[in-house]
Amino acid sequence: MDRLLYVWLVGLHPRQFRERFGQEMIGIYDEHTGNGRHAALFIDLLISLFRQWMLRPAHHEPALSIALPATSSDTPVFQLLDSSLPRRSALVKGAILTLIWFSAMTLFIGRTGHPPRFLIATRTPRPQVLGVGEPAAWRGEPTTQIKLKAEGEDPLYPFAKAYFRMIRVLDILDANHDWIISPWEIITVPAALRRLDQNHDGKLSPEECGFFVGENPKTKLDPQVVQRARLDFMRLNPVLAALDADHDGEISAGEIQNATAALKTLDQNLDGRLTPDEVLPDALTLQRQ
């Protein structure tokens, strides 16, 4: 095993050196096998490997020479072409330099605790270097508005979470589950609603919108009570009430088609999206206040 490793390491030397001395080096290794100097031989070989690749570039592969066909004057033309690939010594040097640079930067950052300051970009030329943590744009020139989800700050959000899960229409409309119906989600309302149509009758019943009265056979509910509850369900939930324009307790095919316009009527602040305070029933909103 040790011998195989030694032979492999010898094979890593530049070809010219390997072909010239490789067999002799292996022969010497074989003669040393019995005297317990294996470690010294391997260390010596690694140093030799480093020296050959880093300090002896003149002994590496010669340039590729190609003989071109003779010209009409029968004068042979020779052309020397360098290999298009980088030399292995250059690759080894590059790798070592990269490692040294990376280690030095890591050490520097670790010791000082501050990353180095590089100039990234600036809209208005300034003489000082721009820090990594500073914005590249000049202060006072915001071009992009970033809105962050305010979960945990608005007390409506815990209600919104439960409410969106309960009202299946809202659950499916809020594709990214941020409890806000965005303009894009409003535009795609008809397609989303059609996915709720489980019996494929072209319209949505209260049950398909999320209405549920339980299935306990021992408690037989009066059908009239159930029907009233179904109507109340569609009437009291603002989103369902807006979608069910004729208030017949179902969202018909035509109402599904006009769902986008219907939902926009809920947008009280006209910001193009529906926030929890615009879709939650009044009771929940009042409870919050």
């Binding site: 001395f21 010294a40 010596d44 030799s48 002896r56």
Partner: peptide
Amino acid sequence: YKLGPGTLYDNLQRLLD
């Protein structure tokens, strides 16, 4: 002073050249 094969042939190569 003990020479290893790597050191020996690295130096021999230079001396030959």
